[in-house]
Design a protein around this nucleic acid. Structure first.
Length: 259
DNA sequence: AAAGACGACAACCGCGATACA
DNA sequence: TTGTATCGCGGTTGTCGTCTT
């Protein structure tokens, strides 16, 4: 039953990779291809965990990697993608050829985060720091045709991820605008997903409270009552209110479009 | 010049999803 | 159907180089 253990940790090297280890890994993968990470170390004569080999290959040894500084265009793309996807580094990396999730994650934490803070933007929410509470609900989003951004999800893996987002949405009462069911089967579809807090933030009670989590940090109706929240919550608006601590603006997937 | 602080990034760890026996 | 291994991901840590005092 099951499989044998991933690796014998007692007999594996840890820490920085040597040139010799790199060469062994590269030549083995060139000869046999990627995959079978579990058996790769033994076959390649490496005293490494398969997991470690995979990481080393994906992040540093792959021939298609683009090394060097990020361009301004890449910076802006990362920021935009992060505002849409959050810390989904692998998805973001999928949109930046030659860049890895680990590289982007490190770059985000060391450069972009600071860059956004200098701009007065919260790197987590992508909203202005110290944003004053809004008296009025945010204006309704402009017509879709005017706002749709195009993000191409080109790999099967990413499509799978998209599906998981959709499935998650369903379990979280997230509304999906099924404007054209045919598009769902098309790889070039515009998902037109809209993630909203449960439409029923009824009578000023947020979804978190409805789950019995009153006074939770995720409670947004406190914000309404106290008038001191991030300020976008309204009892009768679907747009712009917090949902489990995540801005619906951030979760507005209507702008994701499959290519 | 030395020591501590800080930044950058490579690598590890833990977890969830999935595959497999 | 169930238990376990594998894979892949995101968060965190460790280490090394550079800067500042």
């Amino acid at each position: 039953m099951g499989r044998s253990p991933c690796c014998e940790k007692a007999h594996t090297n840890k820490g920085a990779w040597t040139k010799e280890e790199d060469d062994r890994l590269i030549s083995y993968i060139k000869a046999h291809g990627e995959g079978c990470w579990r058996s790769l170390p033994k076959s390649a004569g490496l005293l490494r965990c398969g997991k470690s080999c995979r990481l080393r290959w994906i992040n540093y040894l792959r021939p298609d990697l683009k090394r060097g500084n990020f361009t301004e265009e890449e910076d802006e793309l990362i920021i935009k993608l992060h505002s849409l996807l959050g810390n989904k580094w692998s998805l973001i990396a999928g949109r930046l050829p030659g860049r890895t999730d680990n590289e982007i994650k490190n770059y985000w934490n060391t450069h972009i985060r600071r860059k956004l803070l200098n701009r007065g933007i919260d790197p987590t929410t992508h909203r202005p720091l110290n944003e004053p509470p809004q008296e009025q609900p945010p204006p309704p989003p402009p017509p879709l045709s005017a706002t749709t951004n195009t993000i191409s999800f080109s790999t099967i893996k990413e499509e799978k991820q998209e599906m998981s987002i959709t499935n998650t949405c369903k379990t979280m009462f997230i509304c999906k605008e099924e404007r054209n069911p045919v598009e769902e089967r098309c790889p070039d579809l515009n998902l037109e997903l809209r993630i909203s807090p449960p439409c029923q933030q009824i009578r000023g009670v947020c979804f978190v409270c409805r789950l019995g989590l009153q006074n939770s940090k995720d409670c947004s109706c406190n914000n309404i009552i106290m008038g001191s929240g991030i300020g976008t919550s309204t009892a009768n608006s679907n747009s712009g209110c917090d949902f489990l601590g995540i801005k619906s603006g951030v979760l507005d997937y209507r702008s994701l479009e499959m290519k």
